[in-house]
């Protein structure tokens, strides 16, 4: 499946009243993150528990591999905490994002 499209060049026009289109994204949120979840492909058995518990919905499975849409991951760490195989490690972000 395709991940959400972000139009960062959005010119800022105003729709009539408050009738807006659905899923209209103009900014990403990686700058919110101090730590970043990193998946160890060796330990991961693609059980998708991390996909279930992610409040952002940024974790997905593609070709039997777990992927993360880092554009919107806030680094909350629930995935790492809940992973039964300790296959996700939270790594400090070296530089500020965003």
């Amino acid at each position: 499946m395709t991940r959400a499209i972000v139009n960062k060049k959005f010119s800022g026009e105003i729709p009539v009243g408050t009738y807006g289109p659905a899923m209209h994204l103009t900014e990403t949120l990686e700058g919110w993150r101090n730590e970043k979840p990193v998946i160890s492909a060796d330990a991961c058995n693609n059980c998708k528990l991390c996909y279930l518990v992610c409040p952002e919905g940024v974790i997905f499975s593609e070709n039997n591999q777990i992927q993360i849409d880092y554009r919107f991951c806030k680094g909350c760490g629930i995935c790492a905490k809940e992973c039964k195989r300790a296959a996700i490690i939270m790594e400090k972000e070296v530089t500020a994002n965003g």
Binding site: M1, A4, V6, M23, L25, E27, T28, L29, W32, R33, K48, L52, V53, C54, P55, E56, G57, F60, F72, K74, G75, C76, G77, I78
Partner: peptide, 29 residues
């Protein structure tokens, strides 16, 4: 249980606090 979920994400790019329980409930529903 996973097969009950659509692959599509319908609540995405929101500005909830990191680890927000409410947004997880909304997303899953």
């Amino acid at each position: 249980m996973l097969n009950k979920l659509e692959q599509e994400e319908y609540f995405y790019g929101h500005k909830g606090c990191g680890g927000c329980g409410g947004s997880l409930a909304v997303r899953l529903a």
